[in-house]
Write a protein that binds this DNA or RNA. Structure first.
Ligand SMILES: [Mn+2]
Ligand SMILES: [Mn+2]
Ligand SMILES: [Mn+2]
Ligand SMILES: [Mn+2]
Lengths: 216, 216
DNA sequence: TTAAATTTTTAGACAAGTCTAAATTTTTAA
DNA sequence: TTAAAAATTTAGACTTGTCTAAAAATTTAA
């Protein structure tokens, strides 16, 4: 149906479109670790296939057909990540690269059965929502921890940064998905925060607070 | 490490080498559904990488390094087939094409954990041996059913033909892996056979008998 | 509002893998 | 033992996806 490269472009356009209406050539080049000229070439192909709307110099967005493909790839990515963590006991910082390969296994029948096998999980190991078999994504609105004011309570429900380094740091601090926290204090000088979690105090930087997503 | 095309060539050479010492260009072209000239090009690449021994016009065989890669791909193929049948409830005639994609997922850590998760199965859904994590393949010697003489008993342990059509036929006749049979009679005229299985009589053609593998 | 900086596209090249057609080598069999 | 047939390789072309360098368009900011 679509090549591996095409699928990766569609997925990247989808992710970037979540924070900017029109996705630029350079944004895509940076995310895909390729050159702007290569991106332009591919955008023409995807536009020919009517998977994106592309006006030269104006950036792109997905058509309904393109978005459907992108969401399906993200569904597969997140279900495989869930499988790797829940069934094969990998840590949440180990699974992304494997899922990058597995998301391209083409069979939808396979992924629907995997979904059922695991009991239709709603979130992947990083707290991201798993689209259902009809392409429906339940995007819960989450606040970055940095915007929570002292005295308020919340639950860790996601991360903005998916790097191994950040995930390992969070694991070490026990700042994992589902944990309940209270913001005890914010330090004006560097915007660092002091949290209460399970009776203990944890101090985190503004950088960390910006990348932790909280439901209240 | 190696490209998808390279992996498929190595796997095909391995399979063909089981029945002919030196594998020919045309044999490979037929199995890979490609042209002899394409095969020649790839054989040069694999020879450069020292994964095969290649003398122009004389066919090829795998080096130790090439065989190791081929066996690892076959291990992954068969473990994923087992997963699809045992965990996701696919039928044995549905899993080959999916496994053809999944065998190229690169992580060995992943496949070793999958192996453990499933309890280290020894055979795939078609009765083929699953190589262990060190590349060791336990090849039990099996007879085609056509060479069993009347009066003898045996157990169905494998198939020579893996086509959907043949596997579906066997399923319908309940001629599946593990079934115990007795050869009641062979018909001289067309070499067809009458079997006793679970108290019932089954008549099969010479063609079918040639493609069923029996342990006595 | 225009010049400079930035972004994007175009032009031309390259590697991987495939193809057809033609040349070469090996095998078969008269 | 040699001519025909079959198998294999070579030559040249094409597609996909990538790159660098240069040209063109857009944005920024003086
Ligand atoms: Mn991921
Ligand atoms: Mn994830
Ligand atoms: Mn198979
Ligand atoms: Mn099999």
């Amino acid at each position: 149906m679509n090549t591996l490269a095409e699928e990766n472009y569609l997925k990247s356009i989808y992710h970037l479109a979540l924070s900017s209406a029109n996705v630029s050539t350079n944004q895509l080049a940076a995310l895909l670790k390729t050159k702007a000229s290569s991106v332009t070439d591919m955008l023409k192909k995807l536009a020919d296939k009517e998977l994106i709307n592309y006006t030269p110099y104006q950036g792109v967005n997905l058509t309904a057909a393109g978005e459907k493909i992108a969401v399906n790839i993200i569904r597969k990515h997140r279900l495989w990540e869930y499988f790797l963590v829940e069934k094969l006991n990998f840590k949440w910082d180990q699974v992304h690269d494997m899922a990058e390969e597995m998301e391209h296994i083409s069979s939808n029948e396979l992924i629907d059965r995997l979904d059922k096998f695991m009991g239709f999980p709603k979130h992947d190991p990083h707290g991201d929502p798993i689209p259902d078999c009809n392409g429906l994504v339940k995007t819960h609105h989450l606040e970055p921890l940095s915007s929570i004011v002292p005295g308020q309570h919340g639950t860790i429900c996601g991360v903005r940064n998916h790097s191994t380094m950040f995930l390992q740091y969070l694991e070490k601090q026990s700042l994992t998905i589902g944990k309940k926290i209270k913001v005890a204090e914010t330090i004006e000088f560097d915007h660092s925060m002091i949290l209460q979690m399970e009776g203990k105090e944890i101090q985190i930087s503004r950088e960390v607070a910006n990348n932790l997503l909280i439901a209240q």
